[in-house]
Simulated scan of single mutants.
Amino acid sequence: MDAWVGDRIAEHGGRVTGTPVTYRARFWSVVRCYPTDNGLVWFKENNPGHGFEAGLVDTLAQLVPDDVIASLGVDRVRGWLLAPDHGATLTHGDVEDQPTRYAVVQALARLQCSLLGRVAHPGIITLAPSTAGDRVRSIANEWAALQPTHPLHLNAKLVKRAGQAADVLDRRTASISDGYLTIWCDWLGVDLQVLRRDLAATEALLGVHRLVSWLRLVPYADAIELRTRAEIPRRYLAQVLALAG
C-alpha cells in the first residue's frame, strides 16, 4: 500500500515527507493519510462489497471534473483511491452552518442533474422505488432463515413487522415512477407541492437504501466483525420497521 502510494505521488512530481498515519481502519474501509511536499494526501481502500467506489470516483471526474475530486491514483481491481486533501468537511465547525449546507445541497442537486442517465458503472445497484417493499420482505425472510445464534437473525415478530413496513413502503411509493429522479432536471421550476409530496414519499426509502448498501459488506466480514458490527444493519432495518408504527 505505502509503496503504491509513493509511486503515485512520484508520478505527480511529489514525494512523501513524513510518517503515514492510519486515520481509520474498519472492515468496510481503511483510510490512511500521507504528508507530502505538496500537502496532505488521502488513501482509501474499500471493502470488496464497495470496491467499485474508487473507479466510480474516477469515472465521475471524467464526466464532471469541476465538481468532484481529481484522484492522484486509482486501482479499480483492489478498490484503492488516492486523492489530495480538500479541506474541512461539513461537520467541521468552520462550515457547520445553514448557508453553507444550503449551498452544498444546491450544488449536489445540480451535480445529480448533470449526471442523470450518464453513469453506467459496474457495481452500482439500481433499486427502483416500486421494488423497495419486496426488497425489505426478502431481507427479512433471509434473516429469519439464519440460525438463532446468528447476529442478524430475526424472530417471527420482527418478520411480521417487516412485512407491515413493506406494505407501507408499497403505498408511499405507489405514486412515484421508477424514474422519479428526473424531477431534479427541472428542479428550479418544479411545483413545490409536487416536490414536497415526492420528498415525503422518498424519505421512507432512506433506511432501505442504507440497509441494502451495508449488506454488500457482510459477506466479507469475519465472525468477530459481524458480531461487533451487526447493530449497524439492524439499526437501518429498525428505521424501516418504524414505518409499521
Rank of each mutant, 00 (worst) to 15 (best):
D2K: 04
W4T: 00
V5I: 12
V5Q: 01
E11H: 07
E11V: 03
G13S: 05
G14C: 07
T17A: 06
T17L: 08
G18N: 10
V21D: 10
T22H: 09
A25M: 14
F27P: 12
F27M: 14
S29A: 13
S29Y: 05
V30I: 14
V31D: 01
C33N: 10
C33L: 15
C33F: 13
T36Y: 01
N38I: 13
F43W: 08
E45Q: 13
N47W: 03
H50D: 08
G51S: 04
G55Y: 02
L56S: 02
V57W: 07
D58G: 12
L60R: 02
A61E: 11
D66P: 04
D67F: 05
V68S: 00
V74Q: 05
V74N: 01
V74R: 02
R76M: 09
R76L: 09
V77F: 11
G79K: 00
G79F: 00
W80L: 03
L81A: 05
L81S: 05
P84V: 04
D85W: 07
A88M: 09
L90P: 01
D94C: 08
E96T: 06
Q98D: 15
Q98Y: 15
P99T: 03
R101K: 14
Y102W: 10
A103G: 15
V104Y: 10
V105H: 11
A107P: 09
A109W: 04
R110G: 05
C113W: 04
C113D: 02
S114H: 10
L116K: 04
G117S: 08
G117I: 03
G117M: 03
R118W: 12
A120T: 14
H121F: 10
P122Q: 07
I124P: 01
I125W: 11
T126Y: 11
A128C: 12
P129Q: 08
P129C: 07
G133Y: 02
G133I: 00
S138C: 15
W143M: 05
A144H: 11
A145N: 09
P148N: 04
H150D: 07
P151H: 01
L152Y: 02
L152T: 04
N155G: 08
L158D: 06
R161D: 04
G163Q: 00
A165E: 02
A166M: 06
L169P: 03
T173V: 09
T173H: 09
A174T: 14
S175T: 14
Y180F: 14
T182I: 08
I183Y: 09
W184Y: 12
W184K: 09
C185N: 09
D186P: 04
D186F: 08
W187S: 12
L188D: 11
G189C: 08
D191F: 02
L192R: 15
L195K: 12
D198R: 14
D198M: 15
L199W: 15
L199F: 13
A201R: 10
T202M: 15
L205Y: 02
G207T: 01
V212K: 03
V212T: 08
W214S: 11
P219S: 06
D222A: 09
E225Q: 14
R227P: 05
T228A: 11
T228R: 11
R229N: 12
R229Y: 10
I232D: 01
I232Q: 03
Y236F: 13
L237I: 03
A238L: 06
A242M: 07
L243R: 01
